[in-house]
Simulated scan of single mutants.
Amino acid sequence: MNSQWKSFLESQSAQISADGEVSFVCDDPFPPCALFDLSHLGLIRVSGEDARDFLQGQFTNDIREVTPQHSQLSAYCSPKGRMLANFRIFLHQDDYILQMPRDTHAVVLKRLPMFVLIAKAKVTDASDELVSIGLAGDCAEALLRKQVENVPAQPGEVTRQGELTLIRVPGEPARFQVCGTAEGISTLWQELAKEGQPANRDYWSLLDIRAGIPTVRQQTVEAFVPQMTNMQQIDGVSFTKGCYTGQEVVARMKYLGKLKRRMYLASVDSDTRPQPGDELFAPGSASGQGAGKVVNASPSPKGGFELLVVAEIKSFEENNLHLQGDSGPKLTPSTLPYGFEEA
């Protein structure tokens, strides 16, 4: 974590653990106008004149569509087409920035430079250099307009002001993230905090879950092909961009295969928090691989947990999924904010 930003957060009554976990004591853990520190997300910078062409051969999405005005979701796959990580990628001061959880950030930061070879591209850790914050709520757009001239209007859209890069993130209520220097972000935070209330990462994760945005974690590295987690439904996969690592498997799933599992939104009444990679069970399931896995889960304002799961289509449609065993807590299906493509 950037030392200047750490000191600033502590001045704002944040509690920071030895491993860098930031938390605030919140009267309301789900405030209507929520301000987030996003230090739990690592940042990787890819720079150099060959950066775009290099990344084009690595990721599932078409990097040519990442512009100063547009960000995108993408994934990094193994040769078997299984996701090692997924992330948002955007331009900041002409360099590509990849944003993802710290555990998969370590995986990508170690692996990606191995394939640079003779390309004029450089892969570096920007997590201690740049700072990211989030803002969510019906207040968010109006509150940002008091501080910046141009607020992104559509999900994925990017605007800039000075050294700040602003991105509108999918989901309801309105949600934004801002990336920049510790000094610039600290100044912005102080202004936003006049109306926004600091909230913790669980709430930001909940908003991702409700938006149907999966996050690969250390426990689920190489667990899913992109289509299992609906990456193609949220503009995270291009089927026309050409070759990239794992592309043959991903394309074969689209054109020749039949998807037997996909990602769903659900809730569960459980005293134990579901963890990424936890197995799902369905009485009578014929699959020898289990009925599915938890992708992400976060506490719900209604009690229990809301979660994204990759599950057998049949078992989900029969409302027959459980945690911890065939007779464990039963999942209650919810509706994603997007539909599924027709077969």
Rank of each mutant, 00 (worst) to 15 (best):
R160Y: 15
A136P: 00
Q147R: 03
S39W: 06
N61P: 07
R88T: 11
E183S: 15
S127F: 04
F224C: 02
T245I: 14
D202E: 15
C26D: 09
V249T: 10
N319T: 11
Q154K: 15
A297V: 03
A297R: 02
P32Y: 05
V66R: 08
Q227S: 10
I44W: 05
G81C: 02
L73A: 14
V225I: 15
H70S: 14
K194L: 13
M231G: 04
G180F: 03
G196M: 09
L130F: 08
M1W: 05
A211I: 03
Q219A: 15
T165Y: 05
Q56D: 13
Q218H: 12
L323W: 00
R261F: 08
S7E: 14
G277T: 05
G292N: 03
P113D: 04
L135M: 06
G246I: 01
I213A: 02
M114Q: 14
E183F: 13
E191A: 11
F115V: 09
G212E: 04
A85T: 03
P301T: 06
T215C: 12
E129R: 04
S132E: 15
P214R: 04
Y96S: 10
K258C: 05
K122L: 13
K80L: 05
G292F: 01
G292E: 01
R168Q: 14
T272Q: 15
G48D: 02
V66N: 07
D94E: 15
A282K: 03
P79R: 08
V107I: 09
F87V: 06
F36I: 01
H105K: 09
G20S: 08
T220W: 06
S11Q: 12
G171V: 01
F90R: 08
R261I: 06
I213L: 12
E312S: 09
P198A: 08
G20N: 07
K6M: 13
D202Y: 09
D27W: 05
E21R: 13
R88N: 06
T124P: 09
Q233A: 14
G156N: 06
F36M: 02
L207Y: 03
F316L: 11
W189P: 00
G162S: 09
R52E: 12
A18D: 13
R261W: 07
P274C: 00
P301D: 07
E21N: 09
S287I: 03
V221W: 01
F224P: 02
T165K: 05
E21K: 13
D37W: 09
R252F: 04
P101R: 08
F59Y: 12
A126F: 03
A142V: 06
G277I: 04
D125P: 00
G292P: 00
K146W: 05
E248S: 06
L308Y: 04
F224D: 02
Q324H: 10
H40A: 14
C243F: 13
Q99D: 14
V169S: 14
I213F: 04
G162I: 07
E279T: 14
P152N: 13
T124V: 15
K260L: 01
E312Q: 12
F24E: 08
D235G: 15
V268Y: 01
P155T: 12
K258P: 06
V310P: 06
L41K: 12
G304A: 02
I63P: 10
A297T: 04
I185R: 13
S71V: 02
K241F: 08
L91C: 04
L188P: 05
G171D: 01
R175C: 10
E248W: 05
T240P: 09
Q15H: 14
A85S: 11
L166R: 07
